[in-house]
Simulated assay, not measured.
Amino acid sequence: MDFQLTPTQRRVELARPWVLLGLYIALALAGWWWLAAPLVVVVCLAAFVQMHDTMHNALGLSKAANKRILSLSGLLILKSGHGLQVTHLRHHGRCLTEADPEGAPATWSFGRVLWQGPWHTLMLRREALRIAPNTKRIQLLETGATLALLVGFVALYWLTGSMVGLVYWGVAFLMSATMPIWASYVPHHVSSRNPVARTAAALAQAWTPITASFAFHHLHHHYPRVPTALLYRAATELPPPPEEAHHH
């Protein structure tokens, strides 16, 4: 079965986080912070989905274009896209074993995820460098870019008084620090039969970011090259995989 994005679908998937980012900037400049600040969360989730699809080369892009989008979408959520790709592919290959640093929070208690999760995000950067030292240069460049953003946003505030950059960086930092909760613990603990997952599956047909990632996480583990936007269709057309190996 063909689970490739159409050209129109690909353009939508590529544009989504950047259109949302533009909307955030417009709302922030207008002073509508009650809408702008929560929208950063949506931007980060959309960026996460785009980054995740590029990790698996699922968007149908050339190798060079895929690498660029991986770096840029990772930057939106203050991550090294190539670093996360290293640990994520290890997660798929050795899911929830001792050799799977990304999946470790899924094996912890929720309390431990809360207090140790932010440190775990930093540890993953170290692990990515250890696992794939051949990508050290691009990983360090991407990490440096996230810090450069902070410096630039501080300078923007110092020179103009604008909080647009700092608010974005602050919310994105919180999303990044809590990723072990919403990108590791929750997907591996919520069965597709759970009412919340069923609701997410229904919503996924209209809104790709994160709802499909949660609703069809077990399916993604078996069919990683299926784009997130098409997981809802794959769920109806592909043989259902067992969930036990991916849940605790």
Rank of each mutant, 00 (worst) to 15 (best):
residue 17 P to Q: 09
residue 96 L to K: 11
residue 208 T to R: 05
residue 191 S to L: 04
residue 244 E to S: 06
residue 15 A to D: 01
residue 91 H to E: 06
residue 160 T to W: 10
residue 3 F to T: 06
residue 202 A to E: 10
residue 235 A to Q: 06
residue 180 P to Y: 01
residue 238 L to D: 08
residue 80 S to I: 09
residue 185 Y to W: 12
residue 38 P to F: 00
residue 66 N to G: 09
residue 77 I to F: 13
residue 51 M to R: 09
residue 123 M to L: 08
residue 174 L to P: 08
residue 47 A to E: 05
residue 148 A to G: 05
residue 71 S to C: 07
residue 182 W to T: 00
residue 109 S to N: 06
residue 192 S to F: 05
residue 219 L to G: 00
residue 161 G to D: 02
residue 177 A to S: 08
residue 153 F to K: 01
residue 205 Q to I: 10
residue 94 R to V: 10
residue 54 T to F: 02
residue 140 L to R: 09
residue 203 L to I: 15
residue 208 T to K: 02
residue 69 I to E: 11
residue 210 I to S: 02
residue 129 L to R: 15
residue 164 V to A: 05
residue 104 A to E: 08
residue 112 R to D: 12
residue 234 A to L: 04
residue 121 T to V: 03
residue 79 K to C: 05
residue 58 A to E: 11
residue 77 I to A: 06
residue 15 A to C: 04
residue 212 A to S: 14
residue 27 L to H: 00
residue 141 L to Y: 12
residue 146 T to M: 08
residue 241 P to A: 14
residue 157 Y to V: 11
residue 31 G to V: 07
residue 40 V to R: 01
residue 163 M to S: 13
residue 191 S to R: 03
residue 48 F to W: 14
residue 158 W to D: 04
residue 205 Q to G: 15
residue 198 R to L: 13
residue 125 R to W: 15
residue 179 M to T: 08
residue 5 L to S: 03
residue 123 M to G: 11
residue 80 S to R: 06
residue 186 V to L: 12
residue 102 E to V: 09
residue 72 L to G: 01
residue 246 H to S: 14
residue 102 E to A: 10
residue 153 F to L: 02
residue 168 Y to H: 07
residue 50 Q to V: 07
residue 214 F to M: 08
residue 143 T to E: 10
residue 56 H to W: 14
residue 60 G to V: 07
residue 209 P to N: 05
residue 32 W to H: 15
residue 209 P to S: 03
residue 90 R to C: 06
residue 18 W to N: 04
residue 120 H to T: 05
residue 187 P to F: 00
residue 119 W to A: 10
residue 175 M to P: 07
residue 196 V to C: 02
residue 240 P to R: 11
residue 74 G to F: 10
residue 52 H to G: 02
residue 157 Y to C: 11
residue 150 L to P: 08
residue 132 A to M: 03
residue 91 H to N: 07
residue 214 F to W: 15
residue 123 M to A: 06
residue 231 L to Y: 03
residue 164 V to Y: 04
residue 179 M to R: 10
residue 187 P to E: 00
residue 90 R to A: 07
residue 177 A to N: 01
residue 144 G to D: 11
residue 130 R to C: 03
residue 65 A to E: 13
residue 221 H to P: 12
residue 72 L to Q: 04
residue 156 L to S: 07
residue 233 R to E: 15
residue 122 L to G: 07
residue 68 R to V: 14
residue 144 G to C: 11
residue 39 L to W: 01
residue 102 E to W: 14
residue 166 L to I: 15
residue 57 N to Q: 13
residue 218 H to K: 12
residue 164 V to C: 04
residue 160 T to N: 07
residue 110 F to Q: 09
residue 91 H to W: 02
residue 25 I to M: 04
residue 220 H to Y: 06
residue 32 W to K: 11
residue 115 W to V: 01
residue 103 G to L: 00
residue 132 A to N: 07
residue 156 L to N: 04
residue 73 S to T: 10
residue 221 H to W: 14
residue 194 N to E: 04
residue 199 T to H: 02
residue 209 P to F: 02
residue 172 A to D: 05
residue 150 L to C: 12
residue 107 T to D: 08
residue 130 R to L: 11
residue 62 S to N: 03
residue 32 W to M: 14
residue 40 V to L: 03
residue 239 P to M: 00
